[in-house]
Amino acid sequence: MLQRNPMKKGKTKLTRHDAERLFEGLPAGNVKTSSRPENPFEAGAFDVVERVDVESKLWKDNLISIPMAIELPAGYESISRMRESMVKAWRVKWVREGKSEVVTEFPEGWTAVRPKSGPIELRDASGVVRALYGWAEDAELRILPRYQLESQTNSSSGLGSLLVRDRMNGQILERSSIWSAQTGTNHPDWTRLSVWLKAHYPQHHDPLRYWEDCERNILG
């Protein structure tokens, strides 16, 4: 004779009314129904992100305003010719021209240092001063060469001497042993050191030559 299995006991099933009582007092939310899932990439989702990204690209630390006027070194017949050479040797980009200055994009790491006194110093990524310019509207950009014949003064005696310096690393390549009351081009050793500099670096007057970055960019 078959015996009837007793019904298994289970958890009490909640009615809809019981379930609603569990959430009494909570604010009702607006339920939005749709026949298809919402698109998480709908228009406007990335507007803010894209705007921030664009704005960050508009400003760069290596954007520097320099004078429109340039002190022309020997061998450069015009400012336009000089600017063409600057683009090639320094890899600069002319961004925006004003009345007396031009906003220029320099290679990464270049800066303009404004001392308390004296001209503004345009420095490359290694901190070497590559050019100078003044504060006035009619200021000119003076680009400095790598090799330079410099005067030095003895603070004790007041006498002057001369030396040839490699401005890229600060090394003194040649110097005069004469300390004289005559300084600059009047110094007794000025002619000798000028001849030495020209013999070793024939294009030393060109401020865009001999620098490692300039030579690399010009040849490249």
Score class of each variant (00 low, 15 high):
residue 124 D to I: 02
residue 106 F to K: 01
residue 23 F to H: 00
residue 63 L to A: 03
residue 129 V to H: 08
residue 169 N to C: 09
residue 82 M to E: 05
residue 123 R to L: 03
residue 167 R to C: 12
residue 154 N to I: 01
residue 21 R to Q: 15
residue 6 P to I: 03
residue 157 S to I: 10
residue 15 T to M: 08
residue 214 C to F: 06
residue 49 V to C: 01
residue 46 F to C: 04
residue 101 E to L: 00
residue 104 T to P: 08
residue 195 V to Q: 12
residue 125 A to G: 01
residue 16 R to Y: 07
residue 70 I to C: 00
residue 124 D to W: 04
residue 12 T to F: 05
residue 208 L to T: 00
residue 129 V to P: 08
residue 36 R to M: 10
residue 72 L to C: 11
residue 11 K to N: 02
residue 50 E to T: 13
residue 114 R to L: 08
residue 162 L to S: 06
residue 136 A to G: 12
residue 14 L to D: 03
residue 184 G to Y: 13
residue 21 R to M: 14
residue 133 Y to S: 04
residue 178 I to V: 15
residue 42 E to Q: 13
residue 69 A to Q: 08
residue 143 I to F: 04
residue 155 S to Y: 14
residue 58 L to T: 14
residue 45 A to I: 08
residue 47 D to Q: 12
residue 163 L to G: 02
residue 155 S to F: 14
residue 155 S to Q: 14
residue 90 W to Q: 09
residue 19 A to P: 00
residue 45 A to S: 12
residue 10 G to F: 14
residue 93 K to I: 02
residue 112 A to N: 09
residue 52 V to Y: 07
residue 137 E to K: 15
residue 73 P to C: 11
residue 52 V to F: 07
residue 148 Q to K: 06
residue 32 K to N: 11
residue 31 V to G: 03
residue 163 L to M: 11
residue 59 W to I: 09
residue 75 G to W: 15
residue 133 Y to P: 04
residue 185 T to M: 09
residue 122 L to C: 05
residue 218 I to E: 01
residue 44 G to C: 13
residue 39 N to L: 12
